[in-house]
Amino acid sequence: MAKPRVSAPSEQTGNVVRDSALGMVPQTVDPYLAFNKAIWHQGPLSAAEVEMARLRNARKVNCVFCKAVRYDIAIEAGLDESKVEQIDDDFANSELSNREKLLLAYTDFYLNDPTGMSADFKQQMTDEFTAEEIVHLSMAIVLCNCFSRCAVSLGGMPEDDLPRMEITVPE
């Protein structure tokens, strides 16, 4: 494992975010936690749907921590490991629902080719998702992508995959 580029704050609070390197920028922590809470608890998409986008992002960014995490509210909302296993590059041919495939394909456009959506794909999105849901999905991807890229950029990422870790969304 490479050496982390910064150290976590010396004073520990018991909060996983405040005690990480992010705690060195306290001005952003509370707004981040409030925004993150809204994404996971208050929007029209289920926690299982948000988690699918998060895991798709984690696999593409290759954030070892993000790939290992499962949020408990997503599991409670019905996301099991058999479904998680289908969030791979062949998801279009999986047993996932059409809505789930669209969600993952939209995530892939964000990650790979944000100007590449066809008219037909956009029509499928608006047939399936409301404007509020598209904003919710987009902002969820932005936030997950921001912090998975943050984890990679800060260094210290393990080289090998970690065991699955079920945790609660930090607040």
């Binding site: 920028v25 932005v142 890229r149």
Partner: peptide, 17 residues
């Protein structure tokens, strides 16, 4: 450095959005 990385993440994401 941490602040810059966080900010870059939001700028990157909002550009893609």
């Amino acid at each position: 450095l941490v602040a810059l990385i966080e900010a870059l993440g939001m700028f990157y994401g909002l550009t893609r959005v």
